[in-house]
Each structure stands twice: as C-alpha cells, then as structure tokens.
Design a protein around this nucleic acid. Structure first.
Length: 907
RNA sequence: GCCGGGGUGGUGAAAUGGUAUACACGCAAGUUUUAGGAACUUGUGCCUAACAAGGCGUGAAGGUUCAAGUCCUUUCCCCGGCACCA
C-alpha cells in the first residue's frame, strides 16, 4: 500500500539536497542576459534575532515572501531572495544585559537558532548572501557610508535638548518616541535632556522624500503616514508691530511673527497667542517697567513648565492663558489686538506664535470664548449662514466665500488666500514659508551595542579651527548643492572633528566585560581608554575617538543594497586562491564586498558588478516601520544617489504589509500569557508544508488574525489528501499514468482524462497565476482546494502532464511535499522549484455552464448552457423549464442575455 | 477632529455590476474503526412548511440599474495611524 504522509521523513533531506544543488542561488543578470528576462528582487524585512526564536508571525511574513520568490523563479525571472540579521541595537543589548552575557557572544547563538528554523521551513534563500549587521566586515561599510554622509555635510554634532530614555540611558530620534511620550522599544517615559548628539540632516530631503512617494506601489496607509510625518505645510509668516498700553511702539521688540496657512481670514483676527517658551515672553519678564501683568505671566509660565506633556494633552478642552498687556497691530485694518500667552500654542511648530481667528478655528474659538474675546465672521460656508458665530458647530473651515474682509469680499477662500499672500508680501508685511513636521534625525546612541561612529576629535586642531573640510576633496561637488545656512560641517562648530581614513575601517567595537549603559549620558565605550585615545588623522597628535554608537537603524538603512553584492562563495574562492600564492590582479573581480577595503571605487565596482538586481521589487513586512526604517532607508538611498553611488532614487518599489498573528485567545503572543505557538512544535506535528499552507490560507495576507490550531487541521488534511492521491498512483505499475485505483480507464492515456476536470485545472492554474502577484495567497489555496475536491472524486483522473501541473502551482506553498512527489512519483531529475510555471494558452473553453435564469431580476431557475450558445437557443431551453413557465405567460417584454453569465426575462 | 482600512453565516472568510455565503473551521447525522482530537459520506444563512414551494437576507436609510455586497447620496458602528501642527 501507499506510504503514509510523514513529512519528517523527507523534509530534512530536501533542505540538504537543495543546498547541494544550489537550487536557490541567485542568478544575477549581466546586461546582455537581461534581454527578454526580467529580474525580481524579493525581500522580507530581515529580523532582529531575538532569543525567543522564530515567531509564527515571522513565518507568515517569510512564507509569503518565499511564495512570491518561488513564483517568479519558476516564471523564469532572475530572482534575488536573501536573508540576513539585524543584530545591533537596543533589544539585543537589553536582552544581553538581562542575561548577563556579552551581546557579542549571544547574538551568534540566536542567529544559529533562527537560521536552523528558517531552513526547516524551506525558505528559498540564497544563503551565500547572508550577513549580520554586527559583522565588522559589514559595518566597516556602514561606517564608511557615515563618513561619506559627513563629508556631504549631512551630519553634524550639536548640543541640543533631545529625547532621552532614562531606562535605556540613551538619546533617541523623534520617530522612536510614541505619541504617548514613551520609548517605542521599552515603553518607558521619555525625558528631555541636553546632550551633544550627532544629527542627520534628513530635513534637507523632506521635499524629495515627499514627492517621490508618488511613484511607489505601497499601501495607501503607509504612504499617508509618511506624508503626515513629513508634514509639509505652505503658509506665510506675518510680522506684527507691538505696542504697549500707551499705544506706543515698544522699541526693544517691535514685531512678533506669526505663521499661518489661512491668511485669508486675517480680517477676522482678534488676538495673538504666544507659546510660553516664546522669546518675546522672556523679554517681557526682563523688562523693568511697562508690564502690569508681570507676576501673573511669571506664574503661568512656571505652572505650564511644571506640567508634564501628558497633563497638557489631558487638559485639551479647557483653554488657559494670560494677557501680556501688549497689543499687536493688524496691518490690514490698523486694529490693535491683544497679545496673550497660552500653552495650547506649541513652541516647536511654526514661529511659536499664532494669530487668533476665533470665527474659523476651533482652538481659537474655545480660547476666545474662555476669555471673552471678539469673534468676527469673515467666511460664509455652503449653508449661506451669515449670522454671528455663537456656537462651536458654526466654526467651519473647509469651503466658503469671504465677507467682512474689504478687498477680499466675495472671493472663494482659496483664491483669497493666494491674493492676500501676494498682497502681504508686496507690502513687506510678511513672507511665504514652508514648514515641515519632519525633524533632523538624532543619530547617536550612548550605548555599547552599535556601530562605533568613525570620528575623531582633536583638541589641538580644534584650537586652530581645523576640520574635515580643510582637507577633503572627493565629495565636494555634491556638497555644494546641499550647502545652506544650517550646514555645520565646515563651520567652526565642527572644528577638530575628523573622520577615520578608509584604511582604518572597520573601527571595531571592542569586546568588553562591562558594557552596561552609564548614568553619565556617555557611552560605556568612553571608559575604555585603549579605545578612546588615538592619533589625530590630521595633525598626528593626541586625539580622542567619538564613543557614541549608531542607532539600530543604521545597519538596516542599506542592507538591501549589500545583499546585491555580498557573496560568501566569492570569499571562499579568494581564500582558496590566496593559499596558492600571491593574488593575481584579476582576482579582484571575484572579491565580494566583505573582503574589500571600503572606498568610493570599490563601492561603485560592487554595484556595477551586482547584476542589475537592485532596487528591491517586492518588500514584505510589518506596518510598524512606516516612519522609521522605511523613511530612513529612503533617505540614505537618495543621499547615495546624490553621491552618484546608486542610479536609483527609491529602495523599495513595491511594499506589502503582513498582518500580525495574535494568540488563540486574541491577545498578543507572549511568554507571560503562556499562549505562544512555537513553529518548531507545529512542524514536528504537522510538517512545514501544512504550517506554510495554513498561514497563507488563514486570512488575507495583510490582515491581523488570531491563531487557530483547529483551522490548521484543515490545511493539514489538504496536504495529506494530495499526498495520498499521488501516492496511490505511484504504486500502480503504469507509465506513471494517473488514475484512481480500480478505475477501468485512463491509464497513461491522455485522451481518457476527464475534459471537465482539465478545464477546472486550467481555471485553477489561471487563478493561482494571477493571485500570487496580487498577494492573494488565501484565495490561491482555496482555488486549489476546490480543484482537489473535484480531482479526488473524478473517476478518470488526469494525464501525467496535467497531474504534474497541479503539483507545480502548489509548489511555492508546499515546497517539500511537492518536491518529494515530483522526484519519487514522477522520477524527475531536476527540482520542481526550477521547473517552468505551467501556462494556460488562450481562452478556456467550458462546455457546460450552469446558467442562472432570472424573471424580472429574480432568480427562478438554471439551465445548462455553453459560452457560445445563442440567445434563441438559451431562450427556448429556458422557456421549456417547468419552474420558469410558471412565471412567464406569453412573450417576454425584454430578454437580457450575457453569455456564460445570465439570462433575464422581463415580463 | 483629520487620514487609512473595515462592517457579509456559529467562526476565519469568498464574490471583473450577473446564482451572495466559494474554500476552510465548527456543528449535526450516518458509515468505518478495538479506539480516537483519525478517515469517509451527507447536511448546515434566517423565517413559514412534514415535503413541495415560497418569503427575507451582505451595519442602517434612500437612489441608479433588467440586475447592487459591489456604483451614487445620507448615516451609524469597529479597527489602525496622526493630532491643541495654527
């Protein structure tokens, strides 16, 4: 009898076999070979290898990616499908601190576990491309890139109030702080601290980061999140003259500048509000005379300062504030409007000063109501209501026409906005400005476990005002394009700072006993004198190294580029050659990036020899990176494009999100809840194929879903049924003809196969072929299940060729079982995964279609029809039907017939 | 408040404007088995009805159409993101 389905008996074998056969080796295309052959770079967001091992959520992501990679491989594409390890950063280090192990020892163990698990799942990675971001041979390039960006003027060090996590004892980027003011990694409350930090000028690229989103095939939501994060706003800064109670201009601070996007409403301005931190407020408090409200203001500011950000947000509804005793003059109508201070105005947006138009802004309205300030309507909305504004609901912003605004009256608000901006600029009262929400990127961490920043500070050179720009040449041309007032690289502030020469890379992270973060706000590296003390690259005198490290984002900002030219095989070849004697100059060509000295030429060389695989065509991963990794990588690629190191501007052409997998109890899987599903256990019980099929079938790929072991059974049954079906055939001694046992016909005879079944197979192939690139894995599998239901019941079966086709379309989902059958039942020599994807030529001709019959649009019966049948013929058949006769007497008024779809009689 | 995604059986979910609930889980009955958290067969939206047959059904209310889960208008609710951003 046939063999029982026991995946453990062959899954391991195929992992090894595929490796020996180099089945999944990427085949980069040379420029010539590209003709008529497409490439697909299919990438899953690489994992941080935690101690917990692979999560079923990883499995979902990587299986989906693997299905896409296998699909394109079988469709003849040049496929790059690599995997690596994002191993630097806080999670690894915090775990190491907890386990009292050096992360340098711990990370390789975790990687080994992950890799073993991934292999057992049959992911078709080209393991020759593997690297960890913690490899000195990898991070020497990360460091080199840092230096290039520094030379471009994109990096500078400054002392500024930054977000600081007291638990992780490090500074953080704006993007790493959650809306509730906690650290996205550890959940601890963030504080503000003054610390010297390396800062990346990502804001220089704000416009391009925004406009290039246009061409990307990404989920709408992610695009929107990036747009919001960049937060481009076009408005105008308007200057207001300030007068005191005596209506005389105050000489010391004659103007306040307010940012607004709605200058059209300026005739309705009745007050100005300053953020408590506004410098004007400080000036008032320093004034000797003239200030009546001084103590009140002082008190208010102290109060707001003592409130936490959280408290400020919680008190959203009730507006607070204090009048300064000063007035601003609205140039448009000469009116004096009072200047207030309130904490609802943010000091870090716009100018920290707002002109209040209570009729047309909810916050201004609330504020005016609270303090009895005038409310003047200047816009009439769609409803035509011109009455005085007394209710919150009347405050509308969307559309409308101007009133009470002199020369703007009657204009549409958008037209009026333009007109008054022109007017104000002409008069010299203000200037158009663009503001962004995006902030420069704090790039240094006071932690051990990261790439050391390859910079040296020389006190001597600092005294002499020397720095990098006094010696560099290579990247100058690019730099001039980007230089502006905020460029500090060449300024005195950066005096004394020098990047390491390329020959000194990598700057290795020292292996140390004590790597815990310190309280001082300095990296643990700062206590290691052998690391700190060095020579100045410029004058050769005594100097000190930067001891901060890079954030975990650094390694992931360019790993997808590295995959294109990383190559272990080449490294081995080089080792082999070097053992035989001195290297021939030609051998450079086989050198992979890991063994090369970082340099402009070598980087370019690697890219140009990477076989046109870049950029990434398919990027699959979670949505949580929307404004972190996905924004940072885009930024680096654009900078590298400007350096002419890359010839593309966007790293990820297509992005697809994978939904989270929750535990069976609908909570997050967590050790403490005891609801974690370990993929190893599932594989041991059901096999890797069943797990893969289940995870692809459980729900649409991008949807969050709870685990269900019962549902998994269904996928397991599906896999087993296919196995049994094909096993039975293998023991019948024919020319591998496919037939049901005991069936009298169809042995090895193509003519005998069931035509309806073949049509169904064709439809299934078509469906799977179009569903996979649509990332509709669940419906692909449903279609194959549907087919199997017919296949099993069909007495004749399929020809050998067609039986193989079904196996092929299943192969991306269930690589082990299909391979086993392919080679054992069908005695194929080469892997099914390298076979050609089955094609369905032309239209599928269905001979029998059950055609629904409607009368007056209601379903009343069905009739057997075919795609090409005429109206008359169908009509005659339909009208003979007893059920239909009941509803139709005489000739129908109208007949609507859509061949193969429906016939509808109107009576 | 703004932006994005949704609302369809007991559950996960399918449906280029053309038989709503494919596929799977669960459940029920039956067959088989020493047994089963195994396999197989049949059934399974709701209501009336023994059957036949009919009616109602995709969050709600309208509309367009021969025909609407799908298109349009209004509205309610859920999830995710952003937010005193001027």
């Amino acid at each position: 009898m046939s063999a029982k389905y026991q995946p453990s008996q062959f899954e391991k074998k195929w992992v090894e076999e595929w490796e020996n056969e180099k089945a999944y080796k990427s085949r980069p295309t040379s420029a010539k070979a590209t003709v008529g052959k497409e490439k697909s770079y299919v990438l899953a967001m690489f994992p941080y290898p935690s101690g917990a091992g692979l999560h079923v959520g990883h499995v979902r992501n990587y299986t989906g990616t693997d299905v896409v990679a296998r699909y394109f491989r079988m469709n003849g594409h040049s496929v790059l499908h690599p995997m690596g390890w994002d191993a630097f950063g806080l999670p690894a280090e915090n775990a190491a601190v907890k386990a009292k192990k050096n992360p340098m020892d711990m990370v390789p163990e975790h990687i080994a576990t992950f890799k073993k698990q991934m292999k057992s799942l049959g992911f078709s990675y080209d393991w020759d491309r593997e690297f960890a971001t913690t490899d000195p041979n990898y991070y020497k390039w990360t460091q080199w890139l840092f230096i290039q960006f520094y030379k471009m003027g994109l990096l500078y060090k400054k002392n500024a109030p930054i977000n600081y996590c007291p638990k992780c004892k490090t500074g953080l980027a704006e993007e790493e702080v959650l809306p509730d003011g906690t650290h996205e990694r550890c959940g601890n409350k963030i504080e503000k601290r003054d610390l010297p930090q390396w800062v990346f000028k990502i804001t220089k690229y704000a416009d391009r980061l925004l406009s290039d989103l246009e061409g990307l095939d990404w989920p709408k939501g992610i695009l929107e999140m990036q747009r919001n994060w960049i937060g481009k706003k076009e408005g105008i800064n308007i200057d207001y003259k300030v007068v005191g109670n005596d209506h005389r201009v105050v000489p010391d601070f004659s103007t306040i500048t307010c940012f607004t996007t709605r200058p059209d409403t300026n005739f309705g301005a009745t007050f100005i509000v300053l953020a408590p931190e506004h410098e004007f407020v400080r000036k008032i408090l320093n004034l000797k005379s003239q200030v009546t409200n001084k103590s009140k203001i002082q008190k208010y500011i102290e109060e707001t300062a003592s409130k936490s950000e959280q408290d400020r947000l919680n008190e959203q509804k009730k507006k607070t504030g204090v009048f300064t005793g000063f007035y601003a003059i609205n140039n448009l109508n000469g009116k004096e409007i009072p200047i207030w201070v309130s904490d609802f105005v943010l000091s870090n947006f716009g100018t920290g000063a707002v002109v209040g138009v209570p009729a047309h802004d909810l916050r201004d309205y609330d504020f005016a109501k609270e303090f009895g300030i005038d409310i003047i309507r200047v816009v009439v909305g769609k409803d035509g209501d011109k009455s005085k504004i007394t209710k919150r609901e009347q405050v509308q912003e969307e559309e409308g026409k101007m009133i009470n605004s002199e020369f703007l009256d009657g204009l549409d608000i958008h037209v009026a906005t333009k007109k008054i901006m022109d007017f104000i600029e002409e008069k010299g009262w203000g200037k158009r400005v663009t503001t962004y929400h995006l902030r420069d990127w704090i790039f240094s961490r006071q932690r051990y476990w990261g790439e050391p920043i390859p910079m040296v500070f020389c006190e001597n050179c600092a005294k002499n005002q020397l720095n990098q720009s006094s010696q560099s040449k290579s990247v100058k041309s690019v730099k001039t394009d980007l230089t502006d007032s905020t460029d500090l690289t060449g300024s005195t502030e950066m005096a004394g700072w020098f990047p390491l020469p390329e020959s000194e890379l990598p700057l290795k992270l020292p292996y140390v006993k004590s790597y815990e973060p310190t309280e001082s706000g300095e990296s643990p590296l700062s206590t290691i004198l052998e690391f700190v003390n060095t020579k100045c690259p410029n004058c050769g005198g005594k100097a000190k190294r930067e001891t901060d490290t890079m954030p975990n984002w650094a390694g992931s900002c360019w790993y997808f580029i590295a995959f294109a030219f990383w190559n272990k095989e080449k490294d081995l070849a080089l080792q082999f050659l070097s053992q035989r004697g001195p290297l021939h100059p030609e051998s450079e060509k086989i050198v992979s990036a890991s063994s090369l000295t970082p340099s402009f030429e070598n980087f370019k060389f690697q890219i140009s020899n990477s076989g046109n695989l870049l950029p990434v065509d398919w990027y699959l991963g979670g949505a949580e990176h929307a404004v972190l990794h996905l924004l940072y990588s885009r930024f680096w690629v654009k900078a590298l494009y400007d350096l002419k190191l890359l010839d593309f501007k966007e790293p990820f052409l297509r992005l697809r999100n994978q939904g989270m997998i929750l535990a069976e109890d609908h909570r997050k899987m967590s050790k403490s809840f005891g609801n974690v599903i370990n993929p190893d256990d599932v594989i041991a019980e059901f096999g890797a194929d069943a797990l893969r099929i289940y995870e692809m079938f459980m729900a649409p790929f991008n949807q969050e879903i709870s685990w269900s072991t019962k549902s998994l059974q269904g996928s397991y049954r599906f896999v087993k049924r296919i196995w049994d079906l094909y096993q039975v055939y293998s023991v019948i001694p024919t020319k591998a003809g496919i037939q049901k046992p005991g069936s009298p016909i169809g042995v090895g005879d193509d003519k005998a196969e069931d035509k309806q079944l073949v049509v169904r197979l064709q439809k299934t192939i078509k469906k799977v072929t179009s569903d996979i690139p649509d990332v509709k894995f669940n419906t692909s599998i449903a279609a194959m299940m549907e087919f199997l239901n017919y296949y099993e019941k069909n007495p004749q079966g399929l020809s050998k060729e067609n039986a193989k086709k079904f196996l092929q379309i299943l192969a991306p989902f269930a690589p082990f079982m299909t391979e086993e059958i392919w080679r054992s039942v069908f005695s194929e020599k080469d892997s099914i995964h390298l076979s050609s994807w089955p094609k369905v030529e032309g239209e599928i001709v269905e001979e029998e279609i059950i055609l629904p019959i409607q009368v007056n649009g209601k379903l009343r019966g069905t009739v057997i029809s075919s795609q090409s049948e005429s109206v008359e013929s169908v009509k005659t058949k339909a009208l003979k039907d007893e059920k239909i006769k009941k509803y139709i007497t005489g000739e129908p008024k109208k007949v609507i017939y859509v061949p193969g779809k429906i016939i509808n009689f109107i009576v």
